[in-house]
Amino acid sequence: MSFISYLKDGISLGSVYAIIALGYTMVYGIAKMLNFAHGDVIMVGAFVILTAITKAGLSPLLSVVLGVIICTVLGVVIEMVAYRPLRKASSNLAVLITAIGVSYLLQNLALLIFGADAKSFVPVINFPSLTLFDGRLTIKGVTIVTILACIIIMVGLTLFVSKTKPGRAMQAVSEDRDAAQLMGVNVNATISLTFAIGSGLAAIAGLLLCSAYPTLTPYTGAMPGIKAFVAAVFGGIGSIPGAMVGGILLGVIEIFGRAYISSQVADAIVFAVLIIVLLVKPAGLFGKNIQEKV
């Protein structure tokens, strides 16, 4: 039974990675940049939710909504202030370095506001746990909500991108920015929308992450952020199903590595898997290897 128990933990952690990875992958696919500050938006979301509940006394639901709104706005503002001015810059390196700078900025602002000591996250998700196999396996409410949230977000985003007009505009911008403009698509607005969605999802990821691992510091988002980036690359960066599958696989590998090999090297195993996958399939699992006919 411990195998199934680990599997469920892996899928749950992987679902959080997947939700974060969606933000990475969408921004990469549409804005063609790696937003390394994405992980830290998760942390901001978690702090907003925690503060809203403990300091402002808001209801959990309202606090989560507030967290999503603030992260959405934060994502849009970061893009506008830090990345947009560099969009025409010839060097991708400039954007990358700026993103790393924004990441440190968010961490240090959080340090300034909330301090360095770890806060314990309050239980927000009150969902009954599920007991299976005559009590030999218990799935916690948080786990169920996490996995459900991941599925809903995945399906919702896929439908949004493929079936709605803004979604089609995103695909057009992703493929050919100039041609998209000739269709009347406002590229800046489309990129803003992408950041808004990715950052809103980051708040949800922050909630789910801190509900499963309830300690919160200004650095809480950094490592999951990097792992979610790995997950996005693993699945094929730019691909929504890739982010999903990559995230979940990564979570499962990490938990199994911790359980069956060693908890010290679990992270190393994660990165080793990434390297092997990229050696075999450079574009990732769902990446587009095939050159389209021109």
Binding site: R168, Q171, E175, D176, A179, L182, K293, V294
Partner: peptide, 8 residues
Amino acid sequence: GRRVFSQL
């Protein structure tokens, strides 16, 4: 060069 959206 036409620039159609090849994935769509």
